[in-house]
């Protein structure tokens, strides 16, 4: 074979975001419809009694260690999913100016929300008296 100059390959960091996108997509696809069904239809229609979703119940759940992990995952991952999708949709509809900034804003927003929810839950966990009764 003739000697050709070997092409340089640049590894993409996409696996990180694709992983979060995929995980968030699973949750969005499987759990979001269930959550909408419960909170948007079954409770307002009175099929599920409201008191199961009262402030005290939900607060109690969110201030257990497993409850806070579930809430964090349920909020943060679908956010990563959504913003990854928006980031790629911007390219798809032809907005190609400032891809770097688009990336920073999209993933930065998802990151900020994740940190915010994490901090909030941590506060609720460690200082329940501030938020509870």
């Amino acid at each position: 074979m003739s000697k050709t100059t070997e092409k340089t390959y640049k590894r993409s960091h996409e696996p990180v975001f694709w992983g979060l996108f995929g995980a968030g997509g699973m949750l969005t696809a499987f759990l979001t419809p269930v959550m909408i069904l419960i909170t948007g239809l079954l409770i307002p229609l009175g099929i599920i009694d409201q008191h199961y979703f009262s402030y005290e119940k939900i607060h109690g759940f969110a201030t257990t260690w497993y409850g806070s992990v579930i809430v964090l995952v349920l909020v943060a991952l679908p956010f990563w999913h959504t913003l990854h999708r928006i980031f790629h949709a911007l390219h798809d509809i032809g907005i190609n100016r400032g891809r770097d900034w688009q990336q920073v804003i999209c993933y930065g927003f998802a990151f900020a929300v994740s940190v915010f929810v994490f901090t909030l839950l941590l506060q609720m966990l460690t200082a329940p008296s501030l938020f509870g009764f």
């Binding site: 390959y9 640049k10 590894r11 993409s12 996409e14 694709w18 790629h88 798809d92």
Partner: peptide, 14 residues
């Protein structure tokens, strides 16, 4: 895999 791992590799696909 060096070709696959690039932005122009599989990561160009949505």
């Amino acid at each position: 895999m060096k070709i696959v791992n690039q932005e122009e590799g599989v990561w160009g696909c949505t």
